[in-house]
Design a protein around this nucleic acid. Sequence first.
DNA 1: GCCGTTTTCGGCCCGACTGTTTTCAGTCG
Length: 566
Amino acid sequence: MLAELAHLTSLDEGSPQSFKVRAYENAIHGIEGYPGNVAGLDQKELVAIKGVGGSIATRIREYIDTGTVAKLDELRIKYPAPLVELLKIPGLGPKTLKTLRAELNIQNLDDLKSAIEREALRDLPGLGKTTEEKIAKSIERLGMHGKDRRTPIAEALPLAEGLAAELETVPGVAAVTWCGSLRRFAETIGDVDLVVSSVAADEVMKAVVGHPMAKEVVGSGGTKTSVLTHAGMQVDVRVVTANQYGAALVYFTGSKSHNVALRQRAIDRGWLLNEYGLFDGEDLIASTTEESVYRALDLPFIPPPLRENSGEIEAAADGRLPDLVTLDRIKGDLHFHSDRSGDGRSTLEEMVAAAAARGYEYLAITEHGEDLAINGSSREEMRAHQRRIGSVQEAHPAMRLLYGCELNIGADGNLDYDRDFRLEYDWCVASVHSHFDLSADQQTQRLLKAMADPAVNAIGHLTGRYIGRRPGIEINLDAVLEGLSISGVALEVNGALDRLDASSDVIRRAVAAGVKLVISTDSHHTSDLKRMAYGVSHAQRGWAAAGDVANTMPQVDFIDFVSSRR
DNA sequence: GCCGTTTTCGGCCCGACTGTTTTCAGTCG
């Protein structure tokens, strides 16, 4: 509601920088940083949220109580959807759109196209032939990459990793880092930003322009090149000197809103912060490393996944940043398949060896239960598997293997096998794999019933979503978190890049509610173990401290934790 | 529309790039 208000108000005010628009955007960030359920707050409690004043608080209550907001309805009538759609065209902003509507009565895409055909745009004040052609070209490729097109992180990250590795081999290059929403580990990525430290910018520009993944060069200058990939993703590469690298990383990692707040902090001290450094007049205060920039602003280093201006700067300033979970504190993996599961692709021995190579202290083997057609295992198969796990255990004495199962949560909340058989497992993850379209009430009951089962230790991939492909199930989150909190069942943070389920905002709510987390890879092949790093970054985005994550416990404590559930 | 270790009124981040202009406006990140 607030995002739409901001969007329509930018049209109404004829400026995306209008203070009213920014106030709405600030309120969005404040609310994102609120760890509880905003719908339950009254006017006074709402105003206490940073960025929310009397007017916005009233509109939030109005929205929750009535489902509509009069101000928003007014704006929707004044600016109908077909008109607002035109803002998605790259290069066309609110000012130009206002002119087009006032001068040429353009109301939708067809109006705009025909105005371009009769070359009517070029005679308008402030526009010209070039702008007309630019807008025409933008419309042509609108379907592929409009302003709001976003790519799932599962597609963007491999592209960035590959390109960064190649650019590191270009002569003169000292370092390459992908920045932007990708470094912040957002679920979807607008474009890939690479910041390169190099003494030979032209070499880097040449390498990018001539790269086979570049289908089209959007723009290329001395230090900045933008290209479109064949998949329609924009990649921006920016070259800076080694001395500017830290300030550039801060600047290009964002978020925009985090940067604004940092610059405000600089202004408060009479300084200037930009992508080249932190300055006191002509004097450079900090620029080489990110740490030095933050330190000069009296802040500890803020990990990129937190940089959304949703409370991290205030927390950092007060020394209240959580002791975030990190990869080196992970002691085991608790959602793990071998080719015993129909969709598994590596053998048990290979999978266990891969886990041992990572130095894990414990590992739960969680093959699919019998209810999952094709992929599941019968009781007899499970018993044989248990024996095989026992013999593999002998080869890895330092790592405790848990005989486990990924139970399937049926439509009614029922689980595989029977209670006694389930209780023989050392560790069970229970997950939804079907019936995605039940009502929120039904899904909630289903989950609550599953977590009430004494064999269940964790709820796997909470919503079953695939980012950009399939929405997750609808649930009553408050009820689910309460259920987890009461039962002591852990919430899984699934590290598969196309899942990242539960979402980071749910993780943040869960942490605030005292729910225990487990970060798992849901590995089906030895190459999947690297997902642990993704799960950790994603959990950081949800403000998860090491103490919130059960699989940071050393082996002894973890075994205690598991048996307390049994 | 929000906010206050100078403030309840008067501020509100910064720069690159492009195009349309002779000093600036719009868009973008």
